[in-house]
Write a protein that binds this DNA or RNA. Structure first.
Length: 223
DNA sequence: ACTACGATTACCT
DNA sequence: GGTAATCGTAGTG
């Protein structure tokens, strides 16, 4: 397999699809950020959809507030929300203006791993080990910290912002996606709005762990 | 001003 | 497997 490349930036048309379609389309997409003057990138491997209506678990379920307003902004807006002293990043999508967004829960780190290690305070660990790399990309709070994303970046436009955006990934190996209920919520538990790349090392939660021993990375076999 | 509550994580057995 | 830490929000008085 050739080394992954990330040339084509995703434009407005990508974000203007319905939320469940966008959630699945985000799998395998590369997120780039240069928020601290260092290029960082990772491949999205796990997401969850949060609806604009009929979804009690969504931050938009009880309408717009001071802190969730960017969730009601245009498709392609970045929504960053603080929870348990961490941050989670979401991609706003259709239906526009109604509070639909996709939470990114796992990325496979690709570029800038040394900086990600510093961002997470893991400098004394071996940055090449799988264990360390999983601590960078596995989980919504961890990946935000690795990418240097926090509340200051809430509301940025992923289509036009010069420092952060989404790119089509080239030369990725084939994979299969799977669906499950969402993780860590107490309401609307039954909805199957979690999507992940089957068997990827950087998927969080039980459905990823149960494949222990048979997991793989996009960069397997690449120096 | 006070309280309850997480779209989490680290660390424990 | 389980649980404590932790703090910004939002609801209430």
């Amino acid at each position: 397999m050739r080394k992954p490349e990330f040339a084509q930036r995703l434009g407005n048309e990508f974000f203007e699809q319905d939320i469940l379609g966008l959630a699945q389309a985000l799998l395998g997409v590369t997120i780039h950020s240069t928020l601290k003057n260092t290029k960082l990138a990772g491949i999205i491997v796990e997401v969850e959809a949060y609806m604009s209506a009929n979804d009690a678990a969504s931050h938009s379920a009880r309408g717009m507030t001071k802190s969730n307003s960017s969730m009601f902004a245009d498709p392609g807006t970045l929504y960053v929300y603080p929870i348990h002293s961490r941050h989670c990043l979401n991609v706003v999508c259709e239906p526009a203006g109604q509070g639909a967004a996709v939470l990114v829960r796992g990325i496979e780190p690709i570029i800038g791993i040394e900086q990600m290690v510093r961002n997470r305070g893991l400098a004394k660990m071996d940055s090449r080990s799988l264990k360390t790399r999983r601590l960078l990309g596995q989980g919504p709070g961890r990946l935000c910290e690795s990418l240097g994303i926090d509340r200051r970046h809430d509301g940025l436009n992923l289509v036009t912002d010069p420092k952060i955006g989404l790119y089509r990934s080239l030369n990725l190996r084939d994979w299969e996606s799977r669906t499950s209920i969402r993780i860590g919520i107490s309401k609307a538990k039954e909805l199957q709005y979690r999507f992940f790349i089957d068997g990827n090392h950087f998927v969080s939660g039980l459905a990823g762990d149960h494949r222990r021993g048979r997991c793989w990375s996009f960069t397997d076999g690449i120096a």
